[in-house]
Amino acid sequence: MVTPRSRGSTSSGLVDRLDAAGHVTRHRESTDRRRVTLRTTEAAQQANAAFLGFAGREIAGSLRAAPPEETRAALAFLDRMTAAATTANARLARRARTGG
């Protein structure tokens, strides 16, 4: 189970790794030292654009090759997953408001 405390340290670890890899930089733009703005680096933006350009072509080719019934089934599945996640988020938000 992820507790609020472990969530913070997990997020911190992730940001530390992204920073160390040169993907993001931290900026403190507020007098509140706890508040940090993350910005992607130019190198990360270029790598992302290159990947998305390549992946976009690959994905488009796969979509063109997929039979319509397969595409409909995949979309129906994703719709169900989106509805389930939306329901779960709403339930969590209610729980947070009511404290239960």
Rank of each mutant, 00 (worst) to 15 (best):
T86I: 03
A66T: 05
R72T: 13
A83H: 02
T82K: 10
T37N: 03
A65F: 13
A93S: 10
A65G: 05
A85N: 08
P67M: 13
G13T: 01
F51V: 02
V15I: 15
N89L: 14
S9P: 03
R7I: 09
A66K: 03
M1G: 09
G53E: 05
R26I: 02
A93K: 11
T10R: 10
R17E: 13
S6I: 05
L63H: 04
A93H: 11
T25D: 03
D32G: 01
V36G: 08
F51A: 04
T41H: 08
V36I: 15
A83P: 00
A85R: 11
T10Q: 07
S6A: 07
T41L: 05
H27N: 07
E42M: 13
R17Q: 15
Q46H: 14
L78P: 00
A83D: 06
G56C: 03
V15K: 06
D16Y: 06
Q45F: 07
T40S: 14
T25M: 03
D79C: 00
S9N: 09
T71A: 14
T37H: 08
T37S: 05
S12N: 02
T25V: 07
T40I: 07
R39V: 12
A65E: 10
R7K: 12
G99W: 02
R26Y: 02
V24I: 03
A55Q: 02
A88C: 05
T71D: 00
D32P: 00
G13C: 07
L75Y: 04
E70V: 08
G53I: 00
S12G: 02
A65W: 13
D79P: 00
T37Y: 08
H27Q: 10
L75I: 06
A74L: 14
T86R: 12
R72H: 13
G61D: 09
A96C: 00
N89S: 12
D79L: 03
A50F: 08
R72A: 14
T41V: 08
R33H: 14
P4R: 07
L52W: 14
A88S: 08
L75E: 01
V15A: 09
R17S: 14
F77E: 04
E69V: 07
G22T: 01
M1Y: 11
G8N: 13
A20Q: 13
A65L: 12
R5P: 07
T3Q: 00
P68S: 05
A73Q: 06
R28A: 15
A55I: 01
S12I: 04
L38V: 07
A65V: 12
R5M: 09
T3W: 00
T71L: 14
L75C: 04
R94A: 00
R72I: 14
T41N: 05
R26F: 01
V36L: 08
L52H: 13
R91F: 02
T71G: 10
F77D: 03
S12P: 00
